[in-house]
């Protein structure tokens, strides 16, 4: 299935900004992080289709995953 991955801040370095990747069925958010060699602890904010990833741990075809490091502001 196809998943659109968007990376932000320093995660873009030596990777990419936005890309559609082909993965097998039952791929989880954790699998995507492993594939991208991003440490789970360093991924502060992960959205799947704009919702916190815990709402949808297992992905479906066409999902969009957005990954940020630990950031803040305000």
């Amino acid at each position: 299935m196809k998943i659109r991955v968007k990376l932000f801040a320093q995660f873009r370095k030596n990777r990419f900004k936005e890309k559609e990747i082909e993965v097998s069925e039952d791929t989880s958010v954790s699998d995507i992080l492993k594939l991208l060699e991003i440490d789970e602890k360093e991924a502060g904010i992960i959205f799947v289709n704009g919702r916190h990833f815990e709402n949808k741990p297992v992905l479906e075809n066409g999902d969009q995953v957005s990954i940020f490091p630990v950031v803040g502001g305000g």
Binding site: K6, F8, A9, Q10, G44, I45, F47, G50, S66, F68, P69, V70, V71, G72, G73, G74
Partner: peptide
């Protein structure tokens, strides 16, 4: 996070 990208890192966070 704040020293590197400043508060405006939130534009993309809130958009997403």
């Amino acid at each position: 996070g704040l020293p590197t990208y400043g508060t405006n890192i939130l534009t993309n966070v809130l958009h997403e």
